[in-house]
Simulated assay, not measured.
Amino acid sequence: MPVARPAPEAPSSEEEPATGAVDADGFRRALAVHAAGVVIITAQSDGIPVGLTATSFSSVSLDPPLVSFYVDQSSTTWPWLRDADHFAVNVLASDQADLAARFARKDIDRFAEPTRWRPGPLGAPLLQDVSAHLVCLPHETVDVGDHILVVGLVAEARVHSPGRPLIYHQGRFGRFIAHP
């Protein structure tokens, strides 16, 4: 005699598969719960220092040493960065939220006071008091959606202070607190 099996439970609304286009606001809210480290990408183009804040920084490969970040295709800083023969990744420390906000703003001289920096070994601006610097040679760029993936070959890596990093989470900068 066949055994009666209970009907499967209907999936909760959280488990239902997506059936249409993703809502832009919902997508942004979902991405906002992911915490990301904060860096400032700097370069010198035609003798002018340029830079921008990025939260999309990532390691790519150890051999060869590659890192990446994404930049919005509408960025007014990107054409200057693209033309540079190298760039620096400045890994921000937890007390550098003001610096991150400064390099995220438009229509200001990001390198004027109170920004403190010096030219790096190849000329790219290196911001002072950051946790680490990575000096990179352009390796590859790829158009991806409304952004550009930038991959750099690391030519130099220096750790200055391995303290707490600056984190970006839910539209705000914050600090990392380790579990006891």
Rank of each mutant, 00 (worst) to 15 (best):
P64Q: 12
D98A: 08
L81H: 11
E113P: 11
A18R: 09
A124K: 04
G20W: 08
L52S: 04
G163P: 08
R172V: 05
R110Y: 01
A155V: 01
Q128W: 11
V130G: 06
S161Y: 10
D25L: 12
S12T: 15
R105S: 15
A84N: 09
W80I: 07
H86G: 11
S68V: 08
A7Y: 01
P121V: 06
R28W: 09
F173N: 01
N90Q: 06
T53H: 10
S58M: 14
R118M: 12
P119K: 09
P79V: 06
D83Q: 03
E140Y: 13
A36K: 05
L137N: 10
P162E: 12
V144K: 02
A35T: 06
S74Y: 04
L31E: 13
G174S: 07
A104N: 02
K106A: 14
L149R: 03
F27S: 10
D95N: 15
A54D: 02
S61A: 13
V154M: 09
D72N: 15
G152N: 04
L134W: 02
C136V: 02
V67W: 01
R28S: 03
W117C: 12
L92K: 04
A84M: 02
F69K: 04
Y70A: 04
A112F: 12
D46A: 04
G163C: 07
V60W: 00
Q73P: 09
H133L: 00
I48E: 12
E9H: 07
A88D: 05
L52G: 01
S131N: 14
G145Q: 00
Y70T: 15
R118W: 13
P6Q: 14
F173M: 08
D72G: 13
S131C: 11
P64N: 14
R164S: 15
G174D: 01
A97P: 04
A10S: 07
T115M: 02
R164P: 02
A93M: 09
D72Q: 12
W80M: 13
I177W: 03
R105P: 02
S13F: 12
S68M: 09
S56M: 08
A36Y: 02
Q170R: 15
F57K: 00
R158C: 14
V60I: 11
A4R: 08
A43M: 01
H34K: 13
L126S: 11
E140V: 11
L92V: 00
V33H: 07
A21S: 13
I41V: 15
E15Q: 07
H160A: 05
H147C: 02
E16F: 01
S58G: 11
A88Q: 07
S75E: 13
D129G: 09
